[in-house]
């Protein structure tokens, strides 16, 4: 492995680790103001929505995003499975099977 690859891995690892760990170190020794706690309380729902929606869109530099119709189609049975079972595993398996079927039948 070249030093180019090794240096890249080490430095990328360092910035990622700092992003993960510094907030823990900072919070440990201070009390967050009430407004920040309120702000952060929306992080879970906001970030999960953003991650999900990102997977439904396709980025084209300089244009409006397109739609990933395969992911959108497979999302529908997955959401139904969630409503019916309230089980994370059921949602994942239903979605994967739906996607496999879409590919098998040539729709995706």
């Amino acid at each position: 492995m070249s030093t180019y690859i090794m240096t890249t891995i080490l430095l990328c690892g360092l910035v990622t680790w700092l992003s993960r760990v510094l907030p823990f170190a900072v919070i440990k020794n201070m009390t967050l103001p009430a407004w920040l706690i309120k702000f952060l309380s929306f992080v879970p729902i906001a970030i999960m929505t953003a991650i999900f929606v990102e997977s439904l869109l396709t980025y084209h530099a300089g244009h409006w995003p397109g739609f990933d119709f395969a992911n959108i189609a497979a999302s529908i049975p997955a959401i139904v499975a969630g409503i019916l079972t309230k089980s994370l595993l059921a949602v994942v398996i239903t979605g994967v099977v739906a996607m496999a079927l879409l590919r098998l039948t040539g729709f995706a």
């Binding site: 999900f52 992911n71 959401i79 309230k86 994967v96 739906a98 996607m99 879409l102």
Partner: peptide, 17 residues
């Protein structure tokens, strides 16, 4: 369809949340 596993997981996690 394994690439959909991550999407499916966030659907489940978001709905449960």
């Amino acid at each position: 369809g394994l690439d959909f596993a991550v999407v499916g997981m966030f659907i489940g996690l978001l709905y449960l949340q």
